[in-house]
Design a protein around this nucleic acid. Structure first.
Lengths: 336, 336
DNA sequence: ATGAAAGCGCTAACAC
DNA sequence: GTGTTAGCGCTTTCAT
């Protein structure tokens, strides 16, 4: 293995000078720099990142903990975060938490081990009772669905408002018996609960009475459960004419479930989802959705982390918060 | 920061003993172990991974370089690899190569920096001319579509055979004018070229003459291009009754493109893809596909890497190779 | 502009 | 079963 010492010897300089060259420090005569670079090339020298990490106390890598990378939503979020991190010369290591509280805690522990300089955590398992666990002494950003007003930076989407707008969109298109396909709300900051609130607000505003028979509770936010929920709704005799699905993945499942039941979308039932994933434009019918601008959220989350990294020495600052904006993307599933 | 020294002092033992406890070495009296563990808990000690990496020369992390995590195929592959790696106590850092040769070379360089213990590289940009670049001195596995007979481990899928079976499946279902939607073959080991070969073989075997007007060449393997290709095929007057799409992502786009053109699937045109991604079961119509058993491929790739890690000292061994098997999953898009 | 000294926190190798 | 020694490769600090 070629070390900085070998390069120094070959170039006739000290290891320090080589280090300066590698790190683009200004005070190196260009002739010296040349010589060092030539030696580096000749010996095919590569910095040992582990040694540098130990010395500097930083790894140049941030962790991204998501429930599952194979859900399109998180895949697309991951891609956006990798891109945003690359702009700050940071690498991203992706952890899968399995959508469980335990997995999310494990991700926290890894950063505590100084494996990562900071962590972006897409929480779905941790709840308000766990806010103490989030009071960590390294840079962390909570991203996505849940909202904590704890002492930690977070980037969230406008869950209530987006859900309200989605439901209002269905009402505008003439729906009066609108189903909600979502998880059973577990607490006041969790995605299904928040979007449920938005759904209820839109109904209230339109003077449509809430009917609990229109709620289809699902366990996981998967296509499979979405499809099953749609079939259940059809058999239940609830006579729905619209469905707001808590995520696009669930909505894509629901489209399938309605098709299985012989229910036509959008003629019989109009469907809208949430997230505006890439697939939405290609489903049949194409899927209307709430777009919370994930690229912006990703950039913000990385930006918060980078700010914290720069603040290293300073005392704990006040927690930063960013709530994204949203727009409704109307496609065929709500009549275009 | 709490170090191993602090723990040693608190427990009244040497740092080495603490190290033994941390690493689950057997020769520690259980009473001593208890004492150390208590000290660790009291001081909230965390190993410094950077220091351990420097000392051991290993990072416990493998790199996974894929074109883009937000394509469902790579997201699902990533999830499978993360799961397989976890079984060997390895973490996975995901790099995006942007489906370019440069990006793939950059991923190689990172491992050379000892950031990762090894690399799983899903190549689409590197070609046979680059085999020399793949003769690296750290564990690496080429995964996926391309086949190199170079000196490097690789896990591949049965591209030619799978494509032949997919085309034969369409023929079996009565298709005679079968379009191929794929990239323009760039060389003899690239995915579109290999699957093109399989397509041709199936036609030959069935005695169906090859008609170049049935080829729809696309630039990128995206839904967008798949949809555009389907519309083009419809307008071209080629009068197709089947379409084999080089990947499921392309096929999902094609389903949409045919729908846009008023072409009914499967009544007018039967469609089959390749990869059997999770979405296939939920498209309307659901999508028939070739399933190359990605979980198995992922497990094999990680297994190869782990073997190389264990071989550390030994001389370069012969390259290992694993070609996955496949099965045809018939769904609605080919008539069930 | 360049370099000498020191040490980041851990564990391999070996003693006892 | 436990401890001692040494050093992984790099960069921070401070000198010159």
């Amino acid at each position: 293995m070629v070390t900085i010492q070998d390069v120094a010897k070959a170039a006739g300089v000290s290891p320090m000078t080589v280090s300066h060259v590698i790190n683009d420090h200004p005070h190196v005569r260009s002739e010296t720099r040349e010589r060092v670079l030539r030696a580096i090339a000749e010996l095919d020298y590569r910095v040992n990142v582990a040694a540098r990490n130990l010395r500097t106390g930083r790894t140049g890598t941030i962790g991204l903990a998501v429930p599952e990378v194979d859900r399109p939503y998180y895949g697309q979020l991951g891609a956006a975060i990798i891109a945003a991190a690359a702009r700050h010369n940071l690498k991203v290591a992706i952890e899968q938490t399995g959508a469980s509280r335990e997995g999310e805690l494990a991700a926290l522990a890894l950063s505590r081990n100084r494996l990562y300089d900071g962590l972006i955590l897409a929480t779905v398992g941790l709840g308000p009772a766990d806010t103490d666990l989030l009071k960590v002494d390294y840079p962390m950003v909570i991203l996505g669905e849940r909202i904590f007003d704890g002492p930690v930076d977070h980037v969230a989407m406008p869950n209530v408002e987006g859900a309200r707008a989605a439901t209002a969109h269905l009402i505008e298109r003439g729906c009066r018996r609108i189903a909600l396909i979502a998880g059973a709300p577990r607490d006041e900051v969790e995605v299904s609960g928040l979007r449920h609130d938005g759904y209820r607000q839109a109904l209230d505003e339109a003077g449509i009475p809430f009917d609990p028979r229109l709620l289809a509770a699902i366990e996981g936010l998967t296509m499979e459960e979405g499809a099953a929920a749609a079939r259940r709704l059809n058999e239940s005799g609830a006579e729905i004419d619209g469905a707001f699905c808590v995520t696009d993945t669930v909505a894509i499942g629901a489209l399938r479930g309605f098709a299985d039941a012989g229910v036509r979308v959008p003629q019989d039932v109009k469907v809208i989802g949430f997230d505006n994933i890439a697939e939405d434009a290609y489903t049949i019918p194409s899927l209307s959705s709430v777009d919370p601008d994930h690229p912006l959220m990703a950039a913000q989350a990385v930006g918060f982390l980078v700010k914290r990294l720069a603040e290293k020495g300073k005392k704990r600052q006040v927690a930063r918060e960013f709530i994204s904006h949203f727009s409704i993307v109307a496609r065929e599933s709500t009549g275009g």
